[in-house]
Design a protein around this nucleic acid. Structure first.
Lengths: 219, 219, 219, 219
DNA sequence: TATGAATGAGTTTTCATTCAT
DNA sequence: TATGAATGAAAACTCATTCAT
């Protein structure tokens, strides 16, 4: 049904010039994909935009699917790395603060090339089917899972796996829509996302509810 | 109260036979799309599956894009109608109960042809770009918005427009991921979604927090 | 190589209504041919324009080729009849006057639907190949031949067959170009054509030269 | 002195091999057009005849229309160049002699591929409508015009523009008919055409009439 | 008779991929 | 290595024609 995802370059570029060619091809792929969609992403066009010949393209990549998958992997890796880095650097913070910082980091990284994210999402869905989501999201999901686990004391009663799944995808859905409607820069977005996550966790844990949200402290 | 989507076709079928042909073509499109993705959705294949000739397909539709858009519109309309209907029939209920019921209705309608939903999402993204999301979601979003307004008293302090945007897309993101990972049937899903929505609203409204979640009742 | 020219309607229309349908179809064919060329002349379009169904079209004509040939035949017949009629009614006149009158008649009949003439010419060439010209022109050519013969005394030394061929086609070439460049209405055109014909005959006959062109009389 | 026609192609051939391919495609187009008419001129057939694949055809031409136009332009250019060349090399001659020589040159060039001329004429009419004639003939017309101007002294009283228009198209009409009826080789044709042209000019100019045609000399 | 739905052969056209230079 | 010409399978799409109603 869907083509298998094959990995990485056909040939490891040894020389600097070759490495540069690979970069140029990947960037060209990203640009053309954003500008004309997957249907308009032809090997000729990629090569043209990259300033090399089609032959060269095939020297480094198996075809356009591999190019797209590579671009996607990089994009995903960038987002994941940013998130993971922030998760590490905020280990000492309280959960509410930590989540807000992580969401900030995520929004920032997504803001870099918003339309590329969208285009890649659609394309990967077409290339590898729903299975792609599973692969891609699961990584983030387990990162989120371990972060939650760090705060297990505050989250007693919360099904952490379920929470990781729900929150990761809920946040993703909102961000995707924000990209589509060009609201990524809306200053209220970060607040709303934070509230979404904390609200969910809050609704499941007595501890957090009392200590975590000081606004609730009664008169 | 809520807007309706319509279809446009190359030529309106006059005879009953023709109307049946159109239905058969749409169903064939849905099936082939699910089975082979948009790349595998060829006009020949659609016609074959529908048991008519290609010529007939082109008599009623401009091409496969129009077929897909029509299938999508119907799918969206079905979900929207179910949601709108439930929204109306639960006007008397408290917000928490109402939201849970609406989420149940939504899950139910999405469960009907989960893989079709996914495939349509990916395809529409490719066909019409991110703009498609805007068009599609906005309808649901305003429905959600008016439901929230019905409970404005319970939601003092909540930015209802923002809430409608965030909640609609958060729920959508979770459901989409649930479809992709085959968790739609998970009995915990409905609870989690309800908590997600109520938790968000809760985090923004003093009134709701006190009356809606009895664990919080101070003293 | 080129399809055979088959003649006339598949079925003679007995009733008045049927005759009207045939007329309407022929007129529709002419209109569509002018507006969209032979490539754009589809049976559906003809039927639509005529306000009948395709089925009806096939009730009266074998297909679009027959329709075009019929329209062409009528057009040719109109021009030929006008010319023949004028030839008869001017038998008593001197050759110069007679030719001018015939040319006037020809221009007049061609002016009626100039673009139709052009379109038919191109289409018939495509349908029946160069052979069509032979068939069509020969009729006119022999008419011209017999007119010249009536004035054989004035045209001693002229090869009448050759003259008929040359003059018919020369005049035709000029008129066709006049249509294409929209000069049909140019008042000098008729003079020029007359001069062209008389000049040719003049160049071949001593008698005509002296008596026919009074401007030459020296003195 | 006289304008030149040029070609436009989808992509300019860089290597010698490519240039050869383009030639082969043009020749194949000419052949198929003659053999089967425009209706029978399919891209598959052209490629087959040229001994290349369809893909190659589309690499250099937008489609069959562009191929035909290019062939036509070359054909027209050949005829025009021959005529222009003869016009230059006969500048010193008397008008009668000059015209005969130019007509001879024209007949010669048209004799090369008579049926191609016909087929191109019909096809261009269909492709570009009557407008094509205007474009094509105007060039020749102005060449004829300037030739006539060279002999303005002999042509006092003649409207040179009108003469160029009438004579160019009259000659064209006769030649076209000669091609269609296979009389191009008729030895009388050249005489007749010369007489047609001179006769026309003669009928309009006193000077030429007296000196050019000795049979008229009075007394 | 008239209708218009259905047919499907026949075209055009694209584009990933190969390979001689 | 890089090039870009050539390939041809595969797709979209049209339209003359038929025939059940």
């Amino acid at each position: 049904m869907y083509a298998k995802a094959r990995e990485f370059q056909r040939k490891a570029p040894r020389q600097a010039r070759a490495r540069a060619t690979v970069e140029v091809l990947l960037e060209a792929t990203a640009q053309v994909l954003v500008e004309r969609g997957y249907a308009g992403l032809t090997t000729t066009r990629i090569a043209e935009r990259a300033g090399v010949s089609v032959g060269t393209l095939y020297q480094y990549f198996e075809g356009k699917a591999e190019l797209v998958r590579t671009v996607h992997q990089r994009q995903v890796a960038r987002a994941f790395d940013a998130l993971a880095h922030k998760a590490l650097s905020t280990e000492a913070l309280a959960i509410a603060e930590r989540i807000e910082q992580m969401l900030r980091a995520l929004l920032e990284v997504k803001s870099a090339r918003p339309s590329l994210s969208m285009a890649l999402h659609a394309t990967m869905l077409e290339l590898d089917g729903p299975a792609y989501l599973e692969r891609t999201i699961s990584q983030t999901q387990s990162l989120v899972g371990s972060v939650l686990e760090n705060h297990a004391d505050d989250l007693r009663g919360v099904d952490l796996d379920l929470a990781a799944f729900v929150l990761t995808n809920a946040v993703d859905g909102v961000i995707e829509a924000a990209i589509a409607t060009d609201r990524l820069a809306d200053p209220h977005l970060i607040e709303a996302l934070t509230r979404l996550v904390l609200g969910y966790l809050d609704g499941a844990s007595a501890k957090l509810r009392v200590s975590g949200s000081n606004a609730t402290s009664p008169g």
